Deep mutational scan, measured.
Amino acid sequence: MQRVNMIMAESPGLITICLLGYLLSAECTVFLDHENANKILNRPKRYNSGKLEEFVQGNLERECMEEKCSFEEAREVFENTERTTEFWKQYVDGDQCESNPCLNGGSCKDDINSYECWCPFGFEGKNCELDVTCNIKNGRCEQFCKNSADNKVVCSCTEGYRLAENQKSCEPAVPFPCGRVSVSQTSKLTRAETVFPDVDYVNSTEAETILDNITQSTQSFNDFTRVVGGEDAKPGQFPWQVVLNGKVDAFCGGSIVNEKWIVTAAHCVETGVKITVVAGEHNIEETEHTEQKRNVIRIIPHHNYNAAINKYNHDIALLELDEPLVLNSYVTPICIADKEYTNIFLKFGSGYVSGWGRVFHKGRSALVLQYLRVPLVDRATCLRSTKFTIYNNMFCAGFHEGGRDSCQGDSGGPHVTEVEGTSFLTGIISWGEECAMKGKYGIYTKVSRYVNWIKEKTKLT
């Protein structure tokens, strides 16, 4: 034993070699072989497995989906700052455009905790909710729209109204504003409101030439003092309507412009014939205590009207009353817009006519005020429907199939267009061939041609 100890002390290297040989010859039971080890760690190889990531292109799944990435790591994937920024906006807080917040056709661009709407022409605001041009839906104005110097929408209202708090709607500024039905039992019968379409306001006024200088022999019209197929109006439903009495009662109609003036057809009036105007009328054979009678003290036909040349060209006249009318729910003026808007309103496509005229061709006159909704007829169809001249200051309205029309005794009465609950004068009943005849239409004086003249002559002093 002493000898062994001496050998170990003198030859430590020998001992180490012996131990190493023993270990190498022993069977290893701690580690699995290569094949079995792979069965336990069965993990798919990654895209760049075996390579240094710093030297390969980034992978979106590896960089940002398996674990949260930084902007720089995302930049490695896209290799483009702009594309990385677009991805980053949604990656950080989701897609803010998912709810489609942009209105009126706006395009949404996502941002971090926010979004941006790219608005089409005519709109602005956070969600493109603000109209900035009158060309689109009248700028959301209830009545009139004008573009300011910086191309912003400025709404306005006709006389007797003021802008509401929203700067879009119009509200009454006087007790009985024009064009409004205020009798409670008839307010439910107000005709369907007309909503502004998209309009090209630059070209809204037709490029028409008034044929002022045409000389033409007097034409022989049949029954051209021209509501057939209409309905009984309720008291106060058309408070701007008046009836004219002269040699015979209810020979023509008219509309209240203001307390002192009536507008009617020029062919209705004769110099030297006494005319009485009755406002607030409903049943011409009954006294309903809503009527107001006034005498006409002055007749002003349009300066281009000449019955000797043509009885229905420039067929418009103004009547001055001896005493002002007292405005109330049964006696209310009709609204008159400017030339541009009167023309736009007419193009809405349908209007209402009213009167006490004959209820059928050569038949009896109506006792109760009649009204009828009539569609506008395109000019080409209008011209083809008659052998008589249709001037540019006239328009056609009615039904091709016949059966409904204005008729004798309705002449001078109103053709009105309702705009968001307020009625505007767009025409004056003038003439036609018979009444409600198939293929024939009622012919009306186009008020847009005469609004400046009306307003100039009827100013209240």
Results as ranks from 00 to 15, higher is better:
E320W: 01
V374I: 09
I17A: 04
T458Q: 02
E66T: 07
V451D: 02
T386Y: 13
E165L: 11
T458L: 03
E66I: 05
K45F: 04
N452M: 07
F196K: 10
I454R: 00
C108I: 01
S169V: 07
S148P: 09
D200Y: 07
G229R: 11
C128A: 02
K260R: 12
D111M: 08
K39W: 14
K89W: 05
T218P: 14
V183L: 08
F395W: 01
Y330A: 07
D405I: 14
G442E: 04
C69N: 04
F55E: 15
Q216I: 06
T264G: 02
E231G: 10
E129R: 03
L244F: 03
R298Q: 05
V269N: 00
E165C: 04
N113A: 10
R162I: 09
T158K: 02
I112T: 15
Y330P: 01
G403K: 11
S99R: 14
T417A: 05
N113H: 12
E98Y: 12
L163V: 09
T389W: 14
P235K: 09
G349K: 10
S365T: 15
E142G: 07
P172R: 06
S169W: 06
G280W: 02
A397Y: 02
F123C: 02
V183M: 08
V257N: 00
V4E: 06
E72S: 09
G442R: 09
G94D: 09
V242Y: 00
K247R: 14
D232F: 09
K39V: 07
T133Y: 14
E98Q: 13
H415T: 00
L425E: 01
S25M: 14
I299S: 11
T445R: 00
E193F: 10
V243L: 07
R180D: 01
C396R: 02
A307E: 07
V243T: 09
S329M: 09
L52N: 15
A266Y: 03
G253L: 06
E285P: 08
F144T: 00
R3Y: 08
R404P: 14
R384Q: 14
N452I: 04
R3L: 12
V416S: 05
V154I: 12
F399P: 12
P44A: 12
V263A: 04
W431Y: 14
A37H: 06
K146F: 10
R358H: 15
T264W: 01
G432W: 05
P177R: 01
V243D: 02
N258D: 03
V273F: 08
N127R: 09
I300N: 02
S430L: 14
G413M: 14
L346N: 04
Y47L: 11
K457Y: 13
K146E: 12
S217N: 11
I299N: 04
V4P: 07
S169N: 14
E171C: 04
E61R: 09
G421P: 02
K260Y: 06
T290C: 05
K455N: 09
K168H: 12
C252M: 00
A337G: 06
T158Y: 04
K89C: 06
I428K: 00
V56Q: 13
G363H: 12
S411A: 09
E72F: 06
D111W: 09
V451I: 10
P235R: 09
K339P: 15
T29P: 01
G351I: 02
V263D: 00
W240H: 01
T209Y: 10
G253P: 07
T332K: 06
K51M: 05
N295L: 02
K362G: 13
D150M: 11
D131H: 08
N138G: 08
R226L: 08
S365M: 14
S255T: 13
N343V: 04
G439H: 07
N48H: 08
P101E: 03
C178I: 00
V92A: 15
P12S: 15
E72V: 15
D200S: 09
F360A: 06
P175Q: 07
V77L: 12
R83Y: 09
E434T: 15
D378W: 03
F360D: 13
M6H: 06
S182R: 09
N59F: 06
Y312R: 10
D110C: 05
K455P: 00
C28S: 14
S385A: 12
K438F: 10
Y391G: 15
P301W: 08
I428Q: 03
D232A: 10
Q408D: 14
I15W: 07
A207V: 07
Q143R: 00
R379Q: 14
P44G: 10
D198E: 13
Q216S: 10
I7D: 05
G230F: 13
V451K: 03
G402V: 13
N42T: 14
E340V: 14
N151H: 09
N59L: 05
I7P: 13
T417L: 00
Q370R: 12
L319E: 00
I300T: 04
C102T: 00
I454K: 01
F395H: 02
R191I: 13
C108P: 02
W118I: 08
S423P: 02
P324T: 04
V195R: 09
A380D: 13
Y450D: 01
V374R: 04
D232K: 12
T332Y: 05
Q370K: 07
V30F: 15
I256Y: 00
Y305L: 02
K146V: 08
Y47S: 14
G236A: 06
R62H: 10
L425H: 02
K137C: 04
G363I: 06
K362M: 09
E98T: 14
K274Q: 04
V273N: 03
G105E: 07
E270P: 04
P301T: 09
E323A: 11
K68E: 08
K457H: 12
D249F: 01
G355M: 04
K188Q: 09
W261G: 00
G254I: 00
E286V: 07
D232E: 09
N48E: 15
C145M: 02
C155A: 00
G357A: 14
N138Q: 09
P101L: 05
S430A: 11
S182T: 13
G442V: 14
V92I: 09
A207K: 11
S411E: 12
A317D: 00
W118G: 04
E456T: 11
N304T: 06
Q90G: 14
F87S: 15
K347A: 12
E165V: 11
E171I: 12
T218V: 09
F224G: 12
C128I: 02
L346P: 02
L60S: 14
T461C: 08
F221K: 11
G253Y: 05
S70R: 09
S204F: 09
E231W: 08
Q185C: 06
T290S: 09
C335L: 00
N80Y: 04
E420G: 15
Y391D: 14
Q2I: 07
T342A: 06
Q167A: 07
S406D: 15
T381A: 13
G272L: 03
F87C: 03
L14G: 03
E73V: 06
A436Q: 14
F196G: 12
V377C: 03
V228P: 06
N310E: 07
L346W: 12
C97S: 02
P44F: 04
I334A: 03
K362L: 07
S182F: 08
M394F: 12
D198I: 12
G272K: 03
Y47Q: 10
K459I: 10
A207C: 05
G439P: 06
G412Q: 06
V277G: 00
G21M: 15
A397M: 02
D150E: 10
T186E: 14
I336P: 00
R162L: 10
A436S: 09
D150Y: 07
E288V: 05
A337Q: 01
V4Q: 11
C268E: 01
A380F: 13
N343G: 12
K311P: 10
G125L: 01
S70P: 05
N113W: 04
G412F: 09
P12H: 08
W356K: 11
T422G: 01
N59T: 14
C435M: 03
S430R: 03
G125I: 00
T332A: 11
P120T: 07
S217H: 07
I334W: 00
T445W: 02
E323V: 14
L52R: 13
R162V: 11
I275N: 03
R3W: 09
I275W: 03
G357M: 14
R140M: 08
Y91M: 15
G413H: 14
K274S: 03
G105F: 08
H361Y: 12
W240F: 03
K455W: 05
G412W: 08
K459D: 15
A279S: 03
C382F: 03
T389H: 08
C119N: 02
T417P: 00
P197C: 05
